[in-house]
């Protein structure tokens, strides 16, 4: 079964049409990259998947998105967001909380665990998953804003993983990081896709080629081409895709 099925998805902000009929199948436990130039609608598409886009009051959506067979628009929002974690472009751990609290806060609010021993376990597990544990294990009570950018982003990944989601959305997760930190995040994504379905937005074709199994090329709110990453990059069927992956448009 596909993890996510997007059917005839249209989205507009007021009069401005952003997504113009998207149909996509995202298989389970793969890294699925959505690439395209700025303003093509890729971030909006990602934010439909956990319905974060609805924070914007004048947004209008039609079509359907199914998560493991169930329409997300009929699902309880909290339930949906526990299944679909998200990592943002700007590393944004809560700056006023410690590393530990950053991970446990939403865990407690969502009623997943309350006792200290359980929380300790979750923190260790999530930090290990995010390849951050060894770097911070002695200073879990330290304020999260004292970490480096790359560490902050991995903390954000740990925070999202702690809710035990099945899908992880990543909105240009390395766009604000130095190359070495970006590299670590990419390695981590490659690691995580064995257990999670990762949907990643990127404006860099190189990144899509390096980490994704499948890729969709989005242009002006439409899917121009979608397929296995190697095929799309080696044998693009559409001329626009070819021009994008070879860096002639972007």
């Amino acid at each position: 079964m596909s993890a996510i099925t997007i059917e005839k998805l249209f989205l507009r902000y007021g009069e401005q049409e952003v997504l113009r009929g998207i149909d996509l199948e995202i298989p389970e436990n793969v890294c699925f990259a959505i690439m395209g130039p700025s303003g093509c609608g890729k971030s909006s598409l990602l934010k439909v998947l956990n319905r974060l886009v609805e924070m914007n009051h004048n947004v209008k959506i039609s079509g359907d998105v199914k998560l493991f067979g169930n329409s997300i628009f009929k699902m309880d929002l909290t339930k949906l967001r526990r299944q679909v974690g998200m990592v943002f472009q700007i590393p944004n751990p809560f700056p006023h909380m410690s590393i530990y609290d950053n991970i446990t806060y939403a865990v407690k609010c969502n009623g997943i665990a309350k006792k200290k021993e359980e929380l300790d376990k979750i923190v260790e597990w999530a930090l290990k998953k995010a390849a951050l544990f060894d770097e911070v294990k002695d200073r879990l009570k330290m304020r999260a804003n004292q970490l480096s950018g790359g560490q902050m982003q991995r903390l954000c990944i740990a925070r999202a993983l702690a809710l035990k989601p099945r899908v992880m959305l990543m909105d240009e997760p390395t766009a604000n990081l130095d190359p070495i930190s970006a590299d670590k995040i990419e390695d981590l994504i490659t690691e995580l896709k064995n257990e999670y379905t990762i949907v990643m937005v990127t404006h860099s074709p190189g990144q899509a080629a390096r980490v994704s199994d499948f890729v969709a090329f989005l242009y002006m709110g439409r899917v121009i081409e979608v397929g296995k990453t190697e095929e799309v990059f080696e044998n693009p069927k559409n001329e626009l895709t070819e021009r994008y992956v070879t860096g002639r448009i972007g």
Partner: peptide
């Protein structure tokens, strides 16, 4: 407070009050 903190709050399933 930058909007993305609010977004991440919602993305983590928190309610508006929290």
């Amino acid at each position: 407070v930058p909007q993305h903190y609010k977004e991440v709050g919602f993305a983590l399933g928190l309610n508006r009050f929290r």
